Amino acid sequence: MAKRVVSVSLGASRRDSVVQVELLGEEVVLERRGTDGDFQKALRLIAELDGKVDAIGLGGIDLYLWAGGRRYTIRDAKRLKEAARKTPVVDGSGLKHTLERRAVAQLAGLIDWKSTKVLLPSAVDRFGLAEALHEAGAKVLYGDFIFALGLPIPLYSLSFLQKLAFVLLPVLTQLPFQLLYPTGEKQEKRAVDWRSRYYTWADLVAGDWHYIKRHMPDEMRGKMVLTNTTTEEDVAFLRERGVKRLITTTPRLNGRSFGTNVMEALLVALAGRELGEEEYLRYIDLLGLRPQVLDLQEEA
């Protein structure tokens, strides 16, 4: 009997999909179900799935934000996790800290990080990726103030960002999540505004796809995007803007790459329990998970 993994997302339901894969000798059904930003609907759906599926992923919301080894729990996401009593609920942060960090090293043969300018719209969402880019020698613009808080304050120092995060995250994680991240239909709306000029500076834009897409200008000729959770429609969107290369940290299945929350829930379902960092790395090796590169203009 196939294992079943469901991602319950606060994102748009029109991005829903189902795919069946065979991994490590197991059949697994991966499903994404969006609730169009309806928090109560997400709570009910998780409670309904509890005990009936092997693992649940939280999509469109983070359970944890990280900074320098400290973990901060988002209050709204904790309510969603606690709606399940039997089934493990994960948000993808375990994979972000392992898979995405490792991806930077694996891409060193393709990208000269020391001569690459990287825009990371939200570092606290992907602190492992931020640290890996810093260690690789990339010049990184950490856009947390710009893109999450709407303040024109670009940060280029990871240590300074970390100090700010220690002060701000205990407060920000208690706010309604919709104030920090686009949910439902807001994920589909673009706002090409003053924030878009930071894309012009960058050679590569990395991190959460919805953060990246929301303020992306129409002209992205020759640039690279490092993300996940892209559909065929998203690939066409990037190609139209002249993006040279799309790199996804999770594998493409039936034309789309699934989010880290889905892939983390998949590993938990295969293991039959929640995992630690070393165990995630072991499963990443067993499955041969590596960044996937699409040369968009060559394919066109």
Rank of each mutant, 00 (worst) to 15 (best):
V89D: 13
H134N: 14
I146Q: 03
P176L: 07
D91F: 07
D76V: 07
L151S: 06
A165N: 08
F166D: 06
G92N: 13
A123G: 09
L180P: 05
R70V: 10
H134A: 14
R101N: 00
D76P: 07
L151D: 05
A138E: 06
T173E: 03
V104P: 00
L172Y: 07
A136P: 07
Y181N: 06
A105G: 07
K96A: 13
F166E: 14
G94A: 10
T73G: 05
L158N: 12
P176D: 04
T98I: 15
Q162R: 14
L141D: 00
L172W: 09
V90P: 09
L95H: 02
Q162G: 01
T73Y: 06
G109E: 13
V118D: 07
I153M: 12
T116W: 10
H134W: 14
R85Y: 04
T87P: 13
G68A: 15
T173S: 07
T173C: 13
I111Y: 03
P182H: 11
D112W: 04
P170Y: 10
H97S: 14
D144A: 02
L169G: 11
Q162P: 00
G94V: 12
V104L: 01
E131G: 05
V89C: 15
L169D: 11
F160I: 15
L95A: 04
T183S: 08
P154T: 09
L110A: 12
E100A: 02
A84G: 07
L119R: 02
H134Q: 14
L161Q: 09
L169K: 09
Q178N: 04
S93R: 14
E135W: 03
Y72K: 12
F166R: 13
H134Y: 13
E100Y: 09
Q162I: 06
L80V: 10
R71L: 13
T116M: 11
L172D: 05
G94I: 11
G137Q: 06
T98N: 09
R75K: 15
L168S: 05
G143K: 00
L110N: 12
I111D: 05
G94D: 08
G68N: 15
F177N: 02
V90H: 08
V140L: 01
S122E: 01
V140G: 01
L129G: 10
Q178M: 02
D76C: 06
A123P: 06
D112S: 15
L95P: 03
L129V: 10
F177D: 01
E100G: 00
L169H: 11
G94R: 08
L164G: 04
L107R: 02
L161K: 11
E100M: 14
S115D: 10
S157Q: 13
K139F: 04
V140W: 04
A67E: 06
A136S: 10
I146F: 03
G92D: 12
L175D: 01
Q162C: 07
K117R: 15
P170N: 12
G69M: 05
L179K: 10
A148H: 03
G68S: 15
R75G: 03
S157K: 14
A105Y: 07
T173V: 15
F177S: 04
A108L: 06
P88F: 10
T98D: 11
V140K: 03
L119P: 03
S157V: 15
L179M: 12
L141P: 05
G92M: 12
Y72D: 11
G128N: 08
K81L: 07
I111M: 02
V171F: 15
R102M: 00
H97K: 12
L169S: 12
S157N: 15
P121D: 09
E131I: 09
Q178C: 01
Y72F: 15
L120N: 05
L158H: 12
P170A: 10
